[in-house]
Design a protein around this nucleic acid. Structure first.
Lengths: 141, 141
DNA sequence: CAGTATCCCCTGAGATACTG
DNA sequence: CAGTATCTCAGGGGATACTG
């Protein structure tokens, strides 16, 4: 019999591209880099350190990472509640790469910015693509 | 006088986080990895190799990367048009990191999938977060 | 403290058609 | 071939209020 007969495995396979996409969520990299530096960390610590996350997105990110086996979540049955997050083995190898990326970005942000200024000055008005369209209420109001 | 008086420089600084976010667009990694393997590549080559990109998104991605000095764009004034893209020095260092990421994903996709199945089977119905809400016409109809 | 529940806004990204 | 112009929409992501 095939595994699919068990009625559990529906996703025939997980494409690399798809996995990559879940890893490129807005807060995945910041979270992993934070845990790469200090681990374990509590929910609140992460919240503070990340500066800008909403509880919702932080929780969502953490849940997804936990589901994928990238991080581990430990609940301490105390009151008030205490929950710790730490990288798994899998997560550690991933976090190492993300840290490289973050380093690269920090190192080269000024280069990129400089190049942007050049482009702005010399070349095109560069509305990126499909700019000037304006949606319903994009007036920043 | 300050530079801002020139009316050109408004962005005081480019935060690392922001740069990172532009790098985590859906097609940035695939494009850079492709160019990391073979360079230069023509627009059409990239389109075919990436499999799934729309012209619009490919162009947008390439334009952004060019603007940021990650890739270089060469137009050959022929007919029919011929445009080649290649990594810049900056881009090469970035692409190397992205290639690591892609490798990681390819290597560990099965691990992740296995862990997902475990979670599905054992734990929670796991509607991720804010599932079951349903937007305007989210009936997939 | 950690997490859920809602509501709502963009905007990233796809589909399609057209141009030099 | 390479690129632009539009239109459309799903859903990622933010804000706020509430609960064990």
């Amino acid at each position: 019999m095939s595994v699919t007969e068990l009625g559990i495995v529906q996703g025939v396979e997980l494409p690399t591209r798809e996995l990559l996409e879940t890893l490129t969520n807005k807060w995945t990299l910041p979270v992993l880099c934070a845990l790469h530096e200090t681990s374990p960390m509590r929910h609140g610590e992460l919240r503070r350190q990340l500066d800008g996350v909403s509880q919702k997105m932080l929780t969502a990110t953490l849940r997804t990472l936990e589901r994928d086996g990238i991080i581990e979540r430990t609940v301490y049955p105390e009151v008030p509640p205490k929950v710790e997050y730490r990288l798994s083995g899998l997560g550690t190898s991933l976090a190492a790469i993300f840290s490289l990326l973050q380093l690269w970005a920090a190192d080269h942000a000024s280069d990129v910015q400089a190049h942007r200024s050049d482009s702005d000055a010399v070349g095109a008005p560069q509305e990126k693509l499909s700019a000037g369209h304006r949606h319903r209420g994009a007036l920043t109001a």
